[in-house]
Amino acid sequence: MIFVGLIALLAAVDLFIKSAIEEQEESQFPKELKGSNGKVLLYKNHNAGFSFGYLKNRPEVVQMIPLAVASFVGGMLGGLLKTRGKIADKLALSLVLGGAISNLYDRLVRRYVVDYFSLQFGKLKKVVFNLGDIFIFLGAAIFLIVELIRTFRDR
């Protein structure tokens, strides 16, 4: 049950921040995140497509693919929750699902995903993310690392 709570918490935190960003005037952006010493800039971006606006003119595709993927990930997690152990797998899938639910909510309700921060390092300066994206990335990274460890251990 802790993993279901984690999913809800992650999605809620990201959606809360997105709502706070949406309430602000567009003219206030971009701006520096307080305390980041210029390393994080806040934006108010609306992305109607996939990453970098890909397929923004095909909203039905942009909505249905993430819905199918989130359903698949939820099914995987549902199957794992019935078993003991595999905590890293459950954590990874929970992170992915928490981020996916937040972004899926945006896609289905707002018709765009709210992206709101950029890390001011190298090529990342050109990319604007949201926490949901970070949760998805971290979950996928954990899942990959766990699988690599299993592969090398089983050799």
Rank of each mutant, 00 (worst) to 15 (best):
L42F: 10
Y43M: 10
L41H: 11
E26W: 03
E26L: 09
G98S: 04
T151R: 10
L80W: 02
K18R: 11
L124K: 00
Y43W: 12
E26M: 09
I2S: 00
L55M: 15
I145Y: 13
G98I: 06
L55E: 11
G35V: 09
F72K: 01
L9V: 15
N37K: 14
L41N: 09
V73R: 03
N130E: 11
L41Y: 11
F117S: 01
S102C: 02
M76T: 03
L77E: 06
S94W: 04
L119T: 08
L77N: 10
H46K: 14
L10I: 08
P66Y: 10
L6F: 05
Q63L: 12
E32Y: 07
N130V: 06
F50I: 14
R150V: 02
A48R: 14
V128P: 12
S19I: 07
R107L: 06
S71Y: 08
G98P: 02
R84G: 12
K44Y: 03
L41G: 00
K31V: 01
N47Y: 09
Y112P: 02
Y116I: 04
M76I: 07
F152Y: 14
N130H: 12
L80A: 02
L10D: 02
D115E: 11
K126C: 00
A8R: 13
M1I: 13
L6M: 15
N103R: 09
V69D: 01
N57F: 02
L148N: 08
A70H: 01
S19D: 15
N103V: 11
F152L: 12
N130G: 12
L77Q: 11
F143D: 06
L97R: 01
R107P: 05
K123N: 13
A88F: 13
F3M: 07
S94A: 15
D133H: 03
G74Q: 01
G85N: 10
S71T: 15
I136P: 04
D14K: 04
L10P: 01
H46D: 00
V73M: 04
K39L: 11
G132L: 05
H46N: 05
V114C: 08
V62M: 10
F72P: 02
G53R: 09
F121Q: 07
